[in-house]
């Protein structure tokens, strides 16, 4: 699904990623953990093609193609979805209209027909219920005036509707109370499938209690300094990051 080789990148001339190697196979869930400022969000944004992140070396191959040469929307159409840490507000843009436009843009790019209004509505209602998003919010402007939890649920709803092949969750757990966290995790788990891979970026182990990863990577100072199974997350929870940093430095 995704192969990252020796990726280096900088923001405003400052090197943030210093050589990342990562392989994610179809159906796998990878967690990327690390302290603040380690480069986790940078990696997420580079995968989705955000401006302002300069890739200085290495390559990313997604489903056999060179990802870095693609525009953001082409990546989205090819099945990459980024659930953002701070979802953006779009005043005046109706939530449902937005979702439908997105779905159709993606479907068109794949040569599929646009979704008809009736099946779209059915799907939205069903999936909104799954992520416990108040149906009233569907009629409002995208994220405008939503609470933190509502925004995150809205992200998961979009993910469920757009059915990506590679979903990247950037600090989706931040700012959520335990009930909201569980709902969001349930939404994510419903989407796990053999064709779909996920990269879960998080600072805390908490989210991984609900979304069980196949692999855990620890990103510190722009490098993955340790990879392991889910037990690594528990170890980090118990011991923090510093021992790993020291170990890596030694």
């Amino acid at each position: 699904m995704l192969t990252i080789k020796n990726l280096t990148a900088s923001v405003d001339g400052k090197e943030i990623l210093k050589g990342i190697d990562l392989t994610v196979r179809a159906g796998e869930v990878h967690a990327i953990m690390g302290p603040n400022g380690s480069g986790k969000s940078t990696l997420a944004h580079i995968l989705s093609g955000r401006d302002g992140y300069e890739v200085t070396g290495g390559e990313i191959v997604y489903k056999g193609q060179d990802l870095l040469s693609l525009e953001t929307e082409v990546r989205a159409q090819a099945g990459i979805f980024l659930a953002m840490q701070y979802p953006v507000e779009l005043p005046g843009v109706n939530n449902m209209t937005f979702l439908r436009e997105s779905m159709n843009a993606i479907r068109r790019s794949r040569g599929e027909d646009e979704i008809d209004a009736v099946s779209f509505m059915k799907q939205v209602r069903k999936k909104a219920a799954q992520v416990k998003l108040d149906p009233k919010l569907l009629k409002r402007s995208v994220n405008a005036g939503f609470s933190g939890g509502e925004k995150k649920r809205n992200e998961i709803l979009q993910m469920a509707m757009l059915e990506p092949y590679l979903a990247i969750l950037d600090e989706t757990d931040s700012g959520l109370d335990i009930d909201a966290l569980r709902t969001v995790a349930d939404g994510v788990n419903l989407l796990r499938s053999p064709e779909r891979s996920m990269i879960v970026v998080t600072h805390y182990q908490r989210l991984l209690e609900y979304i069980e990863p196949d692999r855990v990577h620890v990103l510190v100072g722009g490098r993955i300094i340790r990879s392991g199974g889910k037990e690594l997350a528990l170890e980090l929870e118990a011991r923090g990051y510093s021992w790993l940093v020291e170990e890596a430095a030694a």
Partner: peptide, 11 residues
């Protein structure tokens, strides 16, 4: 805002 929309597949 632009990035958000493009990330959802819009040109």
């Amino acid at each position: 805002q632009l990035f958000y929309c493009r990330q959802r597949g819009l040109s």
